[in-house]
Simulated assay, not measured.
Amino acid sequence: MNEERDIALLLREAAEGVEVGAAPYEKVVRGGRRRRARRRAAGAVLALALAGIAVPVAGDLTADRPLVNWEPTAKVELDRRYVYDPSVTTLGEVNGQPVVIEVWGAARDAAELREQQRHMIARNVWDERTSGDEPEIGQTWYLVYLGAQKRTLATGVEEVGYFTHTQTIGSRLVVVGQVTPDIRRIIYKWSTGDVEGRLIQVPGLTQRWFVMEADAKARRMSVITYDAQDRPTVKRT
């Protein structure tokens, strides 16, 4: 009993020696205000960045987070439209060489068309662009070529529907074509057998594209397309 009483007295003396003060209210309030101010400032910087406006950042506003490298909205839009930098897609191979389609988006005004011409000249495709009709505002233009030498297989402005371009290269017959977006499969029936084309959605174009080859002496009997419900449509040739 004496030992328990001694322990109780020691605990009471220790408790009496501890000074319990009031909570640091002012410090807590000031800390909360600083955090809210940082959040408001960060939100403002983000909004300006989304608008494409450069904002100088001072202090420790972003000390605990990385800065985001925002591009101007106008440049991003031009990139997505492929006006100055074309989309380049491989459609397939013929004789071991890639068949590539290059798409230049439609210029919206004369200034964009002039700048597009400068970029086309730099990529050595301007002569191809002007080999047919004169370029017009609002037209999306494509160039399909074969291999590193860029042998032209097809060129033109985007149209809607089923179109093909056919060339004989050596002992092979090469067909480059497009179908509407609802088509899921296309089969060519040749006198030498059936060939199914691989349909590709090309960035910058609304139609789906394909390339296929056959023996140069083969005769094309018919073309069958299938929609999303696998319903066939026969095109006689």
Rank of each mutant, 00 (worst) to 15 (best):
M1D: 04
R5F: 07
L11Q: 12
A14L: 15
A15H: 10
A15C: 01
E16M: 08
G17Y: 00
G17V: 00
E19P: 00
G21T: 13
A23H: 05
P24Y: 03
P24I: 02
K27H: 05
K27I: 06
V28A: 04
V28P: 00
R34A: 08
R34C: 02
R35Q: 11
R36L: 09
R38H: 09
R39L: 06
A41K: 04
G43A: 09
G43R: 11
L48W: 10
A49T: 12
A49S: 15
I53L: 09
V55C: 02
G59R: 11
D60T: 06
L61N: 03
L61F: 00
D64F: 13
D64W: 10
R65F: 02
N69W: 01
W70L: 00
E71R: 13
T73D: 07
A74G: 04
E77M: 11
L78N: 13
D79R: 15
D79M: 12
D79L: 11
D79N: 11
R80W: 09
P86Y: 06
S87W: 02
S87G: 15
V88H: 00
T89E: 11
L91S: 02
E93C: 00
G96F: 13
G96M: 08
P98Q: 04
P98D: 06
V99Y: 13
V99Q: 11
V103Y: 09
W104C: 06
W104M: 06
W104N: 13
W104Y: 12
G105P: 05
G105E: 03
A111V: 03
A111T: 05
L113Y: 02
Q116I: 01
Q117P: 11
Q117H: 05
R118P: 10
I121M: 03
N124K: 15
V125I: 11
D127H: 08
R129S: 02
D133N: 07
E136F: 04
E136T: 02
I137E: 06
I137R: 15
G138R: 08
Y142I: 10
L143Y: 09
V144S: 13
L146G: 01
L146R: 02
Q149I: 03
R151G: 14
R151E: 12
V157G: 04
E158T: 02
E158M: 08
V160D: 08
Y162N: 05
Y162Q: 07
F163Q: 02
H165A: 14
T166G: 08
T166Q: 14
Q167M: 14
Q167D: 09
T168I: 10
G170F: 03
R172W: 03
L173E: 08
L173S: 10
V174G: 10
V175D: 12
V176K: 13
T180K: 14
I187P: 01
Y188G: 15
T192G: 05
G193T: 07
G193E: 09
I200S: 06
I200W: 01
V202R: 04
W209S: 03
W209K: 01
D215I: 14
D215H: 15
A216G: 09
A216V: 15
A218S: 15
A218G: 07
R219F: 00
R219P: 00
R220S: 05
M221R: 15
S222T: 14
S222Y: 00
T225F: 14
D227R: 12
A228E: 15
A228W: 14
A228N: 04
D230A: 10
R231L: 13
T233Q: 15
V234G: 02
R236Q: 15
